[in-house]
């Protein structure tokens, strides 16, 4: 039982963290609350489905192609729709939610509303600590953790990372130090979308695919980033672990109440916010002038 909870938590936490980190990054750098973030995740799922199930493409190239495709779409959307409106935060919010709905309707039109599943990218399973873990779950988890590590290194150890962190803290000052802030924001938008696409491509085969699948993860990652502190990468990862743990606790301890897992996650978020309004690693927005 305990092992079961742990393994499920790990897989879900990795996927949530992946989505939440991307969401946090672009919020931090561009002050953009991108509600279309999980729509990229959904699109990536459909792209994998088309490539693998319909076109018979092998798994690895399908994943890479999907990530490239979604990133290009996301960057185009960013440049054409979001960037010109960046100063108007409410407008950006409305544009992103509209964008998500457009993607949803397009997928409904081409694929229909029925539930689909993507064939496993890796077959078979191992037994770890007495729990059956499919190869697909193990692979997903490993890749996600590796990528999160790579993002961490990118942010901490490279010049681009330093530029991203500086812009996230104070974009006006970064600008005054010769930093091309809009370029940095565009690069961050690309990284953020690539993370969502990777999560979509790898996690989609574990779940059911349908055009509304972006809505549930969106609520969950909103809870995660608010819980962890908006804009904080550390917070997003810790938040993802907390929410994933609470979900698996509900599912395994109260099997008949598992439909409550979402409500339970949001409840945890509310409790944390009551105690620490800025979230666990929150940037209290004092520096914002």
């Amino acid at each position: 039982m305990l092992a079961n909870i742990l393994v499920t938590t790990l897989v879900n936490a990795a996927a949530y963290a992946m989505l939440a980190v991307g969401f946090s990054l672009i919020f931090g750098v561009g002050r953009i609350i991108n509600l279309a973030h999980t729509a990229y995740y959904m699109l990536a799922g459909f792209s994998i489905y088309t490539l693998v199930a319909t076109a018979g493409c092998p798994a690895a190239p399908a994943v890479l192609l999907t990530i490239a495709l979604i990133t290009v779409i996301a960057v185009l959307c960013y440049k054409l729709l979001i960037d010109p409106m960046r100063e108007h935060e409410t407008t950006v919010l409305i544009i992103t939610i509209a964008l998500a709905l457009v993607f949803q309707e397009l997928m409904l039109k081409y694929f229909g509303g029925q539930f689909r599943s993507v064939p496993s990218l890796a077959r078979g399973f191992f037994v770890i600590l007495g729990v059956q873990v499919t190869r697909q779950h193990a692979l997903t988890c490993m890749v996600l953790v590796l990528i999160l590590g790579a993002v961490w290194l990118l942010l901490q150890k490279t010049r681009l990372g330093l530029a991203i962190r500086a812009t996230a803290q104070d974009k006006e000052v970064a600008n005054l130090m010769g930093m091309d802030v809009s370029r940095i924001a565009a690069i961050t938008a690309a990284i953020s979308a690539a993370l969502a696409a990777t999560a979509g491509a790898l996690v989609a085969p574990l779940n059911i695919l349908e055009p509304h699948m972006w809505l549930h993860p969106l609520t969950i990652i909103l809870a995660i980033v608010v819980l962890g502190g908006l804009g904080s990468i550390k917070g997003s990862i810790l938040g993802a672990v907390i929410i994933a743990l609470s979900e698996s606790l509900v599912i395994f301890l109260l099997p008949q109440g598992s439909f409550l897992k979402g409500a339970f996650s949001l409840l945890i978020m509310i409790i944390v916010l009551l105690i620490r309004p800025e979230g666990l690693f929150g940037v209290a927005l004092e520096g914002e002038r």
């Binding site: 010049r159 330093l162 530029a163 130090m177 010769g178 930093m179 091309d180």
Partner: peptide
């Protein structure tokens, strides 16, 4: 790191 940011200017 504050100063390094300035060093990053092209």
């Amino acid at each position: 790191a504050n100063v390094m940011v300035a060093c990053l200017a092209p």
